[in-house]
Design a protein around this nucleic acid. Structure first.
Lengths: 225, 225
DNA sequence: TGGTTCGGTCAAGATTCCCTCAAGACCGAT
DNA sequence: ATCGGTCTTGAGGGAATCTTGACCGAACCA
């Protein structure tokens, strides 16, 4: 069970977010001020930090740099919509992802899960294998029966998610939320097209499936042929 | 047996809904005001809460947030039709499902069951087994005596519901509400046809039943042959 | 036993869903 | 600015699925 520290000064938001994360199975600890949060991080070595910008006692960007100085822990930054422009700087400064406030519990937990998964992939330099498919997360390379595949970024992310959840049916909405980072909008067509391209590169088609099986009315799943 | 707390200020509706839930086999407790309900939740740790919006003493959304601050209990929100737009916010705020008022007892119990089932599914991604039938929810696969069945979406949902409630008679109206998500319309013929197809794929017929037994005048139940 | 209701199956549509193609938008690199 | 790669979006066609009405047999009731 992953441990998450939530740094947020607004009392209501803090409780809401903490409840959502706890419900999602995370072990949550919270801090209402910057230095308190930093202290927690140093003491507890959490698996992930959710950091609200706009803390009263310290600029969020400043705190992020301080966190980075003492720890490699992944950080998700929460920011108001009008500050989205400065997100580029923050991501550069070492943030791993961000959510725009106000965010829902689902959005937050989805991001947390995604970042942790990414982290796990890097840390373990995990190789996923299903049948003749071998995917290396760190090098972002995929081999099919020994031959290297040339995949676009989206195709790679798509395949990785499906391989991580092999045999499990994944809906297009989940794919949009997870690979495309758009929990609401986004068109199913987009997913369809990318799946089609992926199929072509895997040497199969929808009518002659090997790895990618579509489950009519629900989604797709990746199986061993 | 699941314990449900019903928060609803209208006396008549409260009695009706409580009666329906009790008849469906739930252990029901009721509250006529927001704070009274919250108190019950904290004290009794119910398995589910049905929350009416438009309480006199407190905005329903506010109460939902308060509930979320202290508990992860699933919440079903009851709302008037004209407020349907705001449901999105409420679902984001942590509601698990909703019913539109006025609702029937059957609709309510169907939703309650569905939400509880979802919760159970997340907890244990379970496999259901009855006789030679094995159903996996995550991969949406069904095996009959080791052979994989090719089921359509409706057939799968139908079979899952019946397996979840094995030995229990389920009415067509319940099936329409739960599988078809249409508590009002829908024809019984539709259910009949799908049941017929399911029977065919299970290698049986109505006159030679094995798993699916029809209970004349009531509905169907799934039993171990 | 005869009438009535209910349930089962069949065979069309009707509908929804999915796959693929192609055109344009977008982005980064040259 | 232009080019190549990538992504998004719309349209069309085809396949899978669903619904409906009809017909008939089975179960029930008086």
């Amino acid at each position: 069970m992953a441990r998450v520290i939530l740094i947020e000064d607004d009392h209501a938001i803090r409780r809401l977010a903490a409840a959502a994360l706890a419900q999602a199975g995370f072990d949550v600890d919270t801090a209402g001020a910057a230095m308190e949060g930093l202290q927690l991080i140093v003491r507890d070595h959490p698996d992930l930090v959710v950091l609200d910008l706009g803390l009263p006692d310290l600029d969020g960007g400043e705190l992020l740099r301080m966190i980075r100085a003492v720890s490699q822990v992944p950080v998700i930054v929460a920011t108001a919509r009008e500050d989205e422009a400065s997100m580029v700087d923050l991501l550069d400064a070492g943030a791993d992802d961000y959510v725009v406030k106000p965010y829902s519990g689902e959005q937050l937990t989805a991001r947390v899960r995604a970042v942790l998964r990414r982290g796990a992939a890097v840390a373990g330099d995990r190789e996923l294998a299903v049948g003749g498919l071998v995917l290396s997360a760190s090098s972002r390379e995929v081999q099919l029966d020994g031959r290297l595949l040339d995949l676009s970024p989206k195709e790679f992310d798509l395949l990785r998610l499906l391989m991580e959840r092999r045999d499990e049916v994944v809906t297009k909405r989940e794919l949009l939320a997870d690979v495309w980072r758009e929990p609401y909008g986004g068109s199913d067509r987009t997913v369809d097209v990318h799946l089609s391209w992926l199929r072509k590169k895997l040497g199969e088609s929808a009518s002659e499936p090997r790895y990618l099986r579509t489950v009519h009315g629900v989604g797709v799943k990746l199986v061993e042929p």
